[in-house]
Every structure is written in C-alpha cells, then in structure tokens.
Simulated scan of single mutants.
Amino acid sequence: MRKIIYKFLTKLPTKYVTSGIILIVLLFAYGIIGSHFIMGLNLVDSIYYSVSTMATVGYGDYIPTTGIQKIFATTLALSGVALLAYVFNIILTNFQERMSEYSKGARKMRKIGRMDDYYILCGYGRVGKVVFQELNKRKQSVIIFDKDTEATEDLVEDENVVVINKDATENNLISKAINDKCRSVIISTGDDVTNLFIVLTIRETNPDAWIVSRASKIENISRLKKAGADKIVSPEVIGGKDLYFESAKPHILRLTVQHSSDEIFDEFKTIAKFNCNLENIDYHIPGIETPLSREINTMNLDDGKKYANYLRKNKDAKNALDNLYNTVNNIHSHLISGPDHATFDKLIKELEKHETILGKNLTNKEIMEITKKRKE
C-alpha cells in the first residue's frame, strides 16, 4: 500500500497541475460567456465580473437578480474557489516535495564529503548486490546509484553507505561524486548501453578515474574498452566477487615472504595495524607453478588471536601446519588489500623487521623459480 501511495503522489503534481490550469481557463471562459449572455454585461465588464466572482472578491457593483443569474453566479464562485484551491495546493505540494528532495540530496552530498575513501557502485541488481556484500564485508564506504527505489529499499544507510536513487548520468551527478577520495567506480547494471553511457559520462570529466564495468554480452567488451573502462568483467565468467578484486587492483598487494609458522600471529598483527585486509594465502610448492590457495578475508585482530589459541590447543593442527610450511620451505604469498600504496610501503618496512620479503606482485612463474633456487 505504501508503494502504491508513493507512486501516486510522485505522479500527481505534473499531471494534475496541467489539468487544473486547463479547467481554470475553461471556467474563465464559462464566466465570460455567462456574464455576457446571462448578466447582460459587455466584454470588459464580463472579464471583470468573472475574475471577481471566481476569486470571491464580490465588490457588489453587479448583483444578480433573477434566478438564472443567481445560479450562474453561485456555480462560478464555487467552481472558482474549488479549482484555485486545488491548483495552489498541488503547486505547494510539488514545491514542498522538491524542497524536501533537494534537502535530502544536500544531506547525502555532505555525508559523501565526510567520507575518507569510498567506492561508487552503479546498479544494485543481482550482480551489484554481490559486489556490495564484498565491499561491506571489508568495511568499505560505498555510494550506490540506482534509480529503482524498490531495489534499494532494504539497504540501511549509515556513515559508510549512501544510496542515491537517481540516474548516475543525470546532470553529471556521478562525475561530481568522483574525486581523489574515490577509489574505484564499479558499473554493474544489466544493460550494456547504460554501462557504456555511464563510462562515457565519467571519462568526459574524470580521465584518471579507475572504472570497472560489467558486460552482459561478450561482444560489448571491446566497445566498453574503447569508451574508457579500465576493466571489463563478464559475470558469466568470473562473477560479482571478481568485480571487487578488479576494481581494487590499485589497492591490492601480493607479497611473497618466507617465515616459519610460529611467526603467523606477529605477521597478522602487523597487517591489522595498518588497517589492511588479508584476502588469502598462496603456498608455493617447489617446482610447481600453481600454488595452494587458502581464503582468509579478514582484518579483525580477534580472528588472529582465536587462530593462534586454536593452534596452541590443537597439536595435530599445529603439526599439520608445520609440515605444510616445511613442504613449501616457508615460502608463501599474501594477497593484501589496503588504503593506498603509501600504506603498503609502510607495511612492507614493518614486516621486514621479522621476516624475509622475497618480492611483491610476483607472478607464479617468477615465484616458482625462487622456490627452486631456495630448495637447492
């Protein structure tokens, strides 16, 4: 019921203001014709009498005397009052709604201004929801553009989530939201034409923005690339989760290190100290290019403490982990997401104090060559 009322009210002003004005014009014409033929007035006096009667001013200089004249004056006065009140009420309601919308939009823009770093997500459909879940899990600030109010009605806005129910390209709205604090723009609508238009809109004013776009059809990948998208992702191939990883590439570090299992918690504390997120760990078996991967997805220090306590209490699990580390000669890689490159530089310097750093952003092939030499 609430949705029906909302839709009715939002469509009411434009339609009925126009209809009301037309009815006023018709009533004015009725007043002029009736004044001339019923009241016996000339054209100028008919206009004067119609206006004064419709507005219920009634100066009394023309008084209806016959029955038909009184009926005419009564219908003209009542119709005029009703119509004028109706139109002015609709205009006032429309004005109040617009002012409320403007005020709400201004509050959202102030909230965006207070955000330190944020992602922009265009489209909150099936894929967009998965992307948002990945961002929210990592406590990232997100601005969501989706003109469908029903799609976003379950979202709870707070200091880290802002929902804008407007077309992202309307008045270059999305371009105004992109600045140095915007990490990436993720375009995940199901319409490739819409995605293409959003990319073009952003590129006109923000040539340095990092844009990741969804492509529903493979043949549109090249078009989105030419339009200016940095990465194009087909959900059929990799899905919403990888949209996040592609968008975060400027803020993702793959760090290859060598240390024993006893230093795991110290390493975890250091990563958490710099507000970075440990996404996964790759264990590199000497001579084998493809590593063993283990998903972590946390930067909560309590999780690290729980894991350390678990290893202390479970000797079998600790022995199994020690055997794994011995097998890979203590060489493994961490996929770490963080705020920026400067933070990564500080993190690496801190980690170097208690473990060996073999390289950053190395390929599996490069790491395989390192494991071979270290094994020898």
Rank of each mutant, 00 (worst) to 15 (best):
V185P: 05
V185I: 14
I186M: 08
I187H: 01
I187L: 15
T189G: 04
T189D: 09
T189I: 02
T189V: 09
G190K: 14
G190M: 01
N195R: 13
N195K: 14
L196R: 14
I198L: 12
V199C: 13
L200S: 11
L200K: 13
I202G: 03
R203D: 02
E204T: 10
E204V: 00
E204Q: 13
T205E: 15
T205N: 12
N206M: 10
P207E: 15
P207D: 08
D208A: 14
A209D: 02
W210A: 03
V212H: 10
R214F: 03
R214Q: 11
S216M: 04
S216P: 00
S216R: 12
S216T: 11
K217H: 11
I218W: 06
I218F: 08
E219H: 10
I221W: 00
L224S: 03
K226H: 05
K226R: 14
K226D: 11
K226F: 02
A227H: 03
A227F: 03
G228F: 07
A229E: 06
K231S: 09
K231G: 01
V233F: 05
S234G: 11
S234D: 06
P235F: 02
V237W: 05
D242Q: 08
L243Y: 09
L243G: 00
Y244Q: 12
Y244D: 03
F245C: 01
E246F: 14
A248E: 07
I252R: 10
R254H: 06
R254G: 03
L255Y: 05
L255K: 10
T256K: 02
V257P: 01
V257S: 07
Q258R: 15
H259V: 09
S261I: 03
D262P: 05
D262N: 11
E263W: 06
